[in-house]
């Protein structure tokens, strides 16, 4: 078992050894890079990483360059989970056969997928990896849209958001479906650990990720990842958007242990109205027209109900 890295403060954390270089092609202000750095910096152990096709992948491994100072693999859009599961299986095999080159290490196997790769096309692959309980961590960089391909809806895109395949228009308020509850689905796999995290709440994130690293077996992490391009906000406001998402309870932070025990890990002192969260993003701009204004109230009701439900589950331990 490896030692858990001690992290004292943000300054030290943000300057610790980088295995994901700043030299990458992600948009300025992209939360993907912040989340990846926070996760990788939470451990000193060796890393074996994978990424699904999407912004993170196309922006960090453009031949002949790489932003990764750790072993990394990309295969396709849907299978970064199984790619890392295969690597983990090989690790076990070689360990068992005494053929590891550096047998004294404690590598961590982490797959990074977008919401498109995770909520949609790759769900089956993730389900398989979680069910088989590979010793790996699957991280969703959840920007609620197919960002890499120009902003098409995913099953994570929330209702009322304008996406290119569910655009707002004179007779449409945009996306019609509610965001899929992927945490619920992962919880139903009864995996050792699942958690929702946000880059602004970095201490909470590190705690959860470190718990994940210390866990033997499959770990699922869903990270909200504000996307300046598709959510339509100023690149300097990424952290503000992240704050708004957690503090409005649109994106609550909690964990599910063994599919049974739910713990809410962040309760904002001052809960921000959902309207403020929506108003900060161009993708919801049309909701403020008279025609669609009633949806803002519905949004608030839905978030309140979800929060109440989460609290009931925490209390009831279900």
């Amino acid at each position: 078992m490896s030692e858990i890295k001690k992290i004292k403060n943000l300054k030290e954390f943000s300057t610790s050894a980088d295995r994901f270089e700043g030299a990458n092609l992600l948009c300025p202000g992209c939360a993907h890079s912040i989340i990846v750095r926070e996760i990788l910096n939470a451990t000193n152990d060796d890393l074996v990483l994978s990424a699904s096709t999407g912004c993170l992948e196309v922006c960090t491994a453009v031949y002949p360059y790489t932003s990764w100072d750790a072993s990394w693999i990309h295969i396709g859009f849907e299978n970064c989970s199984t790619a890392i599961a295969g690597a983990e299986a090989m690790y076990k095999s070689l360990k068992n056969k005494g053929r590891l080159k550096q047998p004294d290490r404690n590598p961590k196997f982490i797959a990074f997928g977008g919401d498109g790769a995770s909520y949609d096309i790759g769900l089956q692959w993730i389900s398989g990896c979680m069910e088989r309980n590979h010793d790996m961590m699957y991280v969703v960089l959840d920007n609620e849209v197919y960002a890499n391909t120009g902003g098409q809806r995913s099953s994570s895109t929330p209702i009322g958001s304008s996406a290119t395949t569910s655009p707002a228009g004179s007779i449409s308020y945009g996306e019609k479906m509610n965001k899929k509850d992927l945490m619920g689905i992962m919880g139903a796999h009864n995996i050792p650990y699942a958690a929702q995290v946000a880059p602004n709440k970095w201490k909470d994130l590190v705690k959860k990720v470190q718990r994940g690293f210390a866990t033997e077996g499959a770990v699922f992490i869903n990270a909200v990842s504000p996307c300046t391009t598709e959510w339509k906000f100023d690149p300097k406001d990424t952290m503000m958007l992240s704050d708004l998402s957690t503090d409005s309870l649109v994106f609550p932070l909690y964990e599910i242990i063994e599919g049974r025990e739910i713990n809410i890990t962040y309760r904002p002192k001052n809960v921000v109205p959902v309207e403020e969260y929506l108003a900060a993003q161009g993708r919801f701009k049309h909701l403020f027209k008279d025609q669609y204004k009633h949806l803002i109230g519905e949004w608030q009701t839905r978030v309140d109900e979800n929060w109440a439900y989460l609290n009931r589950r925490e209390e009831a331990r279900v």
């Binding site: 060796d46 074996v48 992948e57 196309v58 491994a61 453009v62 031949y63 790489t66 990764w68 100072d69 750790a70 072993s71 990394w72 693999i73 990309h74 295969i75 690597a87 090989m90 690790y91 070689l94 590891l100 080159k101 550096q102 290490r105 590598p107």
Partner: peptide, 14 residues
Amino acid sequence: MLDFEHPVTHGVQT
């Protein structure tokens, strides 16, 4: 990929 002294990148974009 399991040679941690020589990390490698597999499956790049070209």
